[in-house]
Structures are given as structure tokens and as C-alpha cells.
Amino acid sequence: MISIRNVSKHYGHFQVLKDCSTEVTKGEVIVVCGPSGSGKSTLIKCINALEPFQQGEIVVNGISVGDSKTNLPKLRAQVGMVFQHFELFPHMSIMENLMLAQRVVLGRSPDEAQHKASSLLERVGLKAHGLKYPGQLSGGQQQRVAIARALCMDPICMLFDEPTSALDPEMINEVLDVMVELAQEGMTMLCVSHEMGFARKVANRVIFMDQGMIVEDAPSEEFFGKPRSERAQLFLSKILSH
């Protein structure tokens, strides 16, 4: 469903991504981890063209992302994305947040959009909060709303960019629970995350990145059992040791 082939990206002389390649098939859940500055967020932002790249090719559902003729809004409408800092629209109520793109991008009727929004809000356990504004919700609740907002578009896959790293520890699980449920329902997911418990539980594969390169791309049992590369071993020992 997503092919990343030999993608490189640089800001001036600084190379952020070096020759990255991987394939994501339908229904697969992939966790991307690695030290900060390793290019993980940049890589997944290349998939929906929020970040441009200079070399290589990314194909999502048969559409080449880097092609200048590609209708990017149309492509992005099919790829859900959840951000580290939620990025809910603060001037709109929760329901309006969930309905806006359905109305403007997909052209759904108000009734249809509202119906979809309330059913997804219920699914993330926030049905009672539809009329509130993002500022009135906790971080964990806001991130669940952000997931629901992305799901309202009926995406073919979901990208998560460190969805729990801006959260207080006691709120991480409520967000991970929603993600686990989504994974178990068969959603294709690509998650930049350091939540190794989550990775062990639902990831089919783990991608480890360092200095802009994909150092390791392995089934999760294999990755957690015995990573091949020294750098991944070191990384794992650091984040699992306490």
C-alpha cells in the first residue's frame, strides 16, 4: 500500500534522510523508532507530502507522492495523520473540528458529517464532549479527538507522529488503547513512537532509524528478541533498561 523507494532529503548540505526504502502492506502496523534527530518524523511526513524530498519515490495506493502532477489534497484526504501536539483547531468546538474537513474536502452533507463525527467521538469515548472547545480538554482527550478527526475521513492508512510524547504519563494509555484497538481492527498504521510496550503488542514490524538511515527493518519479535545492528541494540538497552 505504501512503497518508499530510495528516498533522500536534505536541507542545504545537511542530509536528513539517506536512501530510505521500505514497503507497507495493507493491514500492517509498523512502529518507527530511533534517537531524536534520526529522521523518523521527517520520513512519515514525506508520505503525505507535508515534507518534500529530493530523491527517490514514494507511492501511496498507486499514486506517486513526489510527482508534481499529483493532486496532493486528494491524496492527503485518504491518509490520516495524528501530530505530536494534536493540532486541533482551537477556535472550533470538538464537533466542528471533526466535521470541517468532511464538509469542505469530501463535500458531505451536514447531517452525514455530524453522524460520522458523533459515532467516531463515541468510539474514542468522548461523546459527551462534542460541544466543548479543545482548550477545555486534557491532552489525552485532545489526542483522542485528533485520532477521531483523522478517522472521520475514512482513511486508507494512518500516520502517527509521536502521538504520546507530548502527554503527561497518566494520559498515555488512554491514547494507546485507542491505537491498539485501531490496529486490531486491521487499520494500516505507521507510528513514530518510543512506546515499546505498544510496539510489542501490536506492531508487525519495527523500523529503527539513525542519522537519516533505516538501520533495521525487522518483524517485531525479531527486533525485540535480538536486533541485528549494534546501534539498535544500544538504543533498546537504553530505553528498556529502567
Binding site: 507535508l50 492527503r76 495523520m81 501530530f83 483547531f89
Partner: peptide, 13 residues
């Protein structure tokens, strides 16, 4: 900037 990115990510032009 994240606000615009979020709008783009939802498919808005």
C-alpha cells in the same frame, strides 16, 4: 505552523 499542516493533512487546499 502545525495548524496549517493539520489542515493540509486533512486534505484541505
Amino acid at each position: 505552523k502545525g495548524q496549517q499542516a493539520a489542515a493540509f493533512a486533512l486534505g484541505m487546499n
